[in-house]
């Protein structure tokens, strides 16, 4: 994802350090971490600080943002979602999981890989080519990232859009209208449906808790 804006706060760094400690305990060759959470929950921020902290341990981690893998173009998505009905269109089914899994497979096998890459300023989808040779870890970041195949450590941020409502309006990344809230509710339900897959939770006060 190009030209995304991150708001990194101390809470991200703190829980990020806890996650890094767990990664170091569990790590193996070509390790994959997934960080899920609702829109505005801070998953991209967390992904960034974790990848950065891992470098201090000599580990090269590449973040992969699932929002690059939508099956609709950014400029057409709203129209497709509203005309098809939010409940029918929004959720895990609007992603190209085949491409996500291809990327995971390329990473596991040290291959050169090609993937979509959204530029948030042009709203076009570019193509990114990266060589996974020399990349030790993959951090998949996205609403339903923990649902991806091949993930070794699944982290879910428990903050919901209800709690981040104000921050969301302030941030101005997305339009603030009734349809947007309907989308957020649908995404919320979808995230709830995969919550049981998580190994770790980042609680609402940003501490790391192991799943039972």
């Amino acid at each position: 994802m190009l030209e995304d804006v991150l708001l990194i706060a101390p809470k991200h760094r703190e829980v990020g350090e806890e996650i890094v400690a767990e990664i170091l305990k569990a790590k193996k060759d070509k390790f994959i971490v997934a960080i899920s959470g609702e829109s505005g929950s801070g998953k991209s921020e967390l992904t960034h600080v974790v990848a950065k902290a891992l470098r201090k341990h000599g580990i090269f981690a590449k973040p992969i943002h699932i929002d690059n893998f939508y099956n609709t173009l950014p400029l057409e998505r709203m129209e497709i979602r509203t005309s098809g009905g939010i409940k029918n269109t929004v959720g895990m089914k609007e992603y190209r999981w085949d491409l996500v899994h291809q990327t995971v497979d390329d990473f596991k096998n040290n291959r050169k890989s090609s993937m979509p890459c959204v530029d948030l300023v042009t709203e076009q989808v570019d193509e990114l080519i990266t060589d996974f040779n020399g990349v030790d870890m993959l951090i998949i970041d996205g609403l339903y990232a923990i649902h991806s195949e091949g993930v070794d450590m699944k982290v879910l941020i428990e903050l919901t859009y209800h709690e981040t409502k104000k921050a969301q309006s302030d941030r101005g990344k997305e339009p603030n209208n009734p349809t947007r809230w309907e989308i957020l509710e649908q995404e919320h339900q979808e995230v709830l449906s995969i919550k049981h897959e998580a190994d770790w939770f980042v609680s609402k006060d940003f501490t790391l808790v192991a799943a039972r």
């Binding site: 080519i129 990266t130 020399g134």
Partner: peptide
């Protein structure tokens, strides 16, 4: 990529 310090390739129109 500033996190990996690797040079990727981008194809854009």
């Amino acid at each position: 990529d500033l996190l990996t310090d690797h040079v990727d390739t981008l194809i854009t129109d």
